[in-house]
Design a protein around this nucleic acid. Sequence first.
DNA 1: CTCATAGGTAACCAATAGGTTACATATTTG
DNA 2: CAAATATGTAACCTATTGGTTACCTATGAG
Lengths: 115, 115
Amino acid sequence: MRDDLYQLDEAATDAVFQALASRERRRLLDLIRGNPGCIVADLLSAFEMSRIGVLKHLRVLEEADLVVSEKAGRERRLYVNTLPLRAIHRRWSDEFDDFWAGKLLDLKDKIEAGS
Amino acid sequence: MRDDLYQLDEAATDAVFQALASRERRRLLDLIRGNPGCIVADLLSAFEMSRIGVLKHLRVLEEADLVVSEKAGRERRLYVNTLPLRAIHRRWSDEFDDFWAGKLLDLKDKIEAGS
DNA sequence: CTCATAGGTAACCAATAGGTTACATATTTG
DNA sequence: CAAATATGTAACCTATTGGTTACCTATGAG
């Protein structure tokens, strides 16, 4: 799919941010990104929690379409799908352009200084 | 504060993504961004839920440091703080640079096509 | 075939999130 | 001062989340 045709609706955006709102899941995502094609079992040693706990976090990432998988025999190969992150990145770049460019005041500092 | 000195720790990152993982809160953020200095009461008409509901969402945004406020008499003026978003934007730009640049395969398409 | 391995499902439980109503406080206005 | 306005807190309820143990299924290896 072409990068710029990928759009997230509100529900998908909810799912992506919700998925990212957990340290464990962000770590999972990093591990898979660093080891594309790894299988579920490869991930377990990195976590304290039970296998089922990891599986559930993985499911959340998959439902947010941040991770995709490919069944290979009795194993499942995991990959990060970057399109949702790129879609958010692109949208923010558009919406917050003035902010990114530093054209607007940093209002927090202004307030804290008593303006 | 200088843009590139602002860093989010893991707990702060949790809070930011959690705050963004709600349509209502993203809408709230958009409203405040579009009306900097607006007061709480200004926001209420845009929502179905009770005032307290809106206040709670607002609190979540404030705890994530995405919204800051300034007390003015009996009113409270609200502003978006863009630093957390910029920090995430910047971190992604670093970490996912290869992906942003489109240098890596789109693994999902590859998988769906049966590789 | 037998059994170990990789993975998944079901049912449950405690904690958190998202909302409510009722009440309280502080500030402006007449 | 009295009343209206702007906001905040407390207590409560329901649904969702994050985790568990126990059990089930499918595949690969000897």
